[in-house]
Simulated assay, not measured.
Amino acid sequence: MPRDERHTETIPYGTLGIIPLASCTEMGKKVDEYLVKWREQRQNENTSTLNFAGYKRDSYIVNAKTPRFGSGEGKGVLVDSVRGHDLYIMLDVCNYSLEYTVCGFKNHMSPDDHYADLKRVIAAAGGKARRINVIMPFLYESRQHKRTGRESLDCALMLQELTDMGVENIITFDAHDPRVHNAIPLKGFESVSCTYQFIKYLLLNVDDLHIDSEHMMVISPDEGGMGRAVYFANVLGLDMGMFYKRRDYTRIVNGRNPIVAHEFLGTNVEGKDVIIIDDMISSGESMIDVASELKKRGASRVFCATTFGLFTNGFKKFDEAYENGIIDRILTTNLVYQPSELLSKPWYINVDMSKYMALLIDTLNHDSSISNLLSPVERIQQRVKEYNELHYGK
């Protein structure tokens, strides 16, 4: 059943309200535009009833602020009413571009600051919203998801804290380890994959791909990313390879055991285009090392697709890798902050996730199943079929 037709048969859970925090303003505007357009076009004989009150509006954004005092302390303020609303609070904990002042000194906002602002807005709602959902594309503290030695379990603590505050659903994208859901087994938690969007934007930007096992291969840069690489390879009918990291566990450098070498497991990559699929690019050293190893083994072109492009050490190494023919294109999403410098790079492909996020919100607000959105196999295969017909007539 088409999405719009399905939604005319279900009653919204509550009046839809979107609260994009300052870290997620641009994404929030795009999502709001999609929702306004879809609901304006949607025909439903029941929209005049009380159950559909406020269904069609010029904007679904609820005005919220998180100002700070001169000491650096903050507060959450809701300018608009949220009573009876089905709220979707959006934030990007990786947006380091925002600043605040402490006693005259400028501070860049850290993930901790963004998370504190989220809690302030939830607290400002004061239990008046009908349901609170949090959309946190990069899951806060998701890299600290397990304990090795005497360590904190930050991600689990965060999930439990939010649900204790009344959050019903937490939606994230490509969680570093989705098993953190075990911390809140009785609450909604979705780790959404970006597979369809990666394939869509790769096909839109590269005209001469041959998507078959003779010409293309999917690579996981480490053992932790095996699951997403297996799925990616299976839906495209490709072979898969994997690297594993040999580390020096006798030393700790910058908080981690240094990588000694990347060892490859898989079939021959010679002459094939390869897609390296991962959840994030942090400093990028591992990604470039893996791409270099693939080139040494005779790979043709190297495409890197990661959900979150953090680029914590800047872009210099990626510029060099592109100039040296090690990496051809890099795809990351707009789920986290993208500096203008990144958007101007010749090797960069921006994967826009705003429409997909709007689809999730629209569907959840109608209390409908999102299963087909989480596993878009048919849409992927249709996209590949259209690409082959356009470029190769088959």
Rank of each mutant, 00 (worst) to 15 (best):
S371L: 12
L203C: 10
I252D: 08
C94S: 07
W347N: 08
E293C: 14
T195F: 01
R131L: 04
Y100W: 01
I135Q: 05
P346L: 06
E5D: 14
S292K: 13
A229C: 12
E73S: 13
L310A: 08
D58A: 12
V384M: 08
K394G: 00
L238N: 09
V167P: 05
H114D: 05
C304Y: 03
T163Q: 12
D212M: 03
A124N: 11
R301A: 03
L236H: 07
R6V: 02
Y249K: 14
D239C: 03
Y115W: 07
K295G: 01
M27H: 11
G84W: 01
R251K: 15
R120C: 07
H366S: 14
G284V: 06
V253L: 09
N313P: 00
A53Y: 06
K119V: 04
L153G: 09
A129Y: 06
E5K: 13
T267N: 08
H366K: 08
A233K: 01
D278Q: 03
H85Y: 14
K394A: 07
G17E: 11
E214M: 03
S340P: 04
Y392V: 02
Q160V: 01
L236R: 09
E73H: 04
E45Q: 07
R83Q: 10
F315R: 06
K119W: 05
I19L: 11
I170K: 12
L21N: 08
L342R: 07
K106Y: 06
K119F: 08
R147V: 10
T66Y: 02
N350I: 03
D208N: 15
V384H: 07
H145F: 13
I330Y: 10
L335R: 05
K30C: 10
N95E: 13
Q41H: 10
Y244T: 12
S81K: 07
I327L: 09
T66A: 05
E223V: 14
S371I: 05
R130A: 10
I184Q: 11
V260C: 02
V336M: 01
V77H: 11
R383A: 15
R329V: 03
L359N: 14
Y96D: 15
I199L: 08
G225E: 13
N324V: 04
R379F: 05
K56T: 09
L87M: 14
H366Y: 14
Y231W: 05
Q43D: 11
V77L: 12
Y100G: 02
S23W: 06
Q338F: 02
E389W: 03
G237T: 07
K65Q: 13
N63S: 12
H262Y: 11
I135G: 10
G298E: 07
M165E: 12
S152W: 08
V93N: 09
Q144W: 06
V274F: 06
P12S: 13
Y88P: 00
G54C: 05
R83A: 13
N44P: 00
S81Q: 04
R131Y: 14
G76H: 01
A175Q: 07
C24E: 14
D164E: 12
N365R: 00
A53P: 00
A156I: 01
L16A: 09
G54N: 04
T49Y: 02
A123N: 12
E5V: 12
T163R: 09
G14L: 05
F232A: 09
K187S: 11
N182A: 13
R256C: 02
C24I: 02
M158D: 10
T47M: 11
